[in-house]
Amino acid sequence: MVVKVAIWGVLILSSLLLVMTVFRSRGGTRVLASLGVNVVVAAFLLYLLNLLSGYTHIELPINTATLGTATVLGVPGVLLLIGVKVVLL
């Protein structure tokens, strides 16, 4: 129980320090806005892909791993996820 509280404390403290560091820099709000837009676009692409799964027969779950890959890599990331699903699964 004490270990869980310590881990949560470290997580919250490090998150607060990260937010403080980002907002202190001059371009910090631009970085957060850009990241937010990328997450929204990635979620929309994955949702659109799942919406069209009746035609394509390809479904990708919207979870942290797929959303993170699509956020960082964009459309090539979604194509990478599709390729991994087709080849490996």
Rank of each mutant, 00 (worst) to 15 (best):
N50F: 09
L73N: 10
I82L: 07
V3M: 07
L67G: 01
V19H: 05
T69S: 03
G27M: 10
L60W: 05
L48G: 09
L79P: 05
E59N: 08
S34M: 14
A42H: 01
L51A: 13
T29E: 12
V19W: 00
N50P: 04
G9T: 07
V40N: 01
E59Y: 12
L35E: 13
S14P: 10
S53I: 12
E59T: 12
I62V: 04
A70E: 01
T66N: 11
G83F: 01
K4I: 03
L51I: 07
Y55V: 11
N50R: 13
G77D: 10
L89G: 12
G68A: 08
A33P: 01
R24K: 09
I12H: 00
Y55R: 04
V39N: 00
S15Y: 09
T71D: 03
V22D: 04
L18W: 13
E59S: 11
L51T: 12
L18V: 14
S34K: 14
L80K: 03
V39Q: 09
L89K: 06
E59M: 08
K85G: 02
A42Q: 01
G74I: 00
L89Q: 11
S34P: 04
Y47C: 02
G83W: 02
I12E: 05
V78I: 15
G36H: 08
N50D: 15
H57E: 11
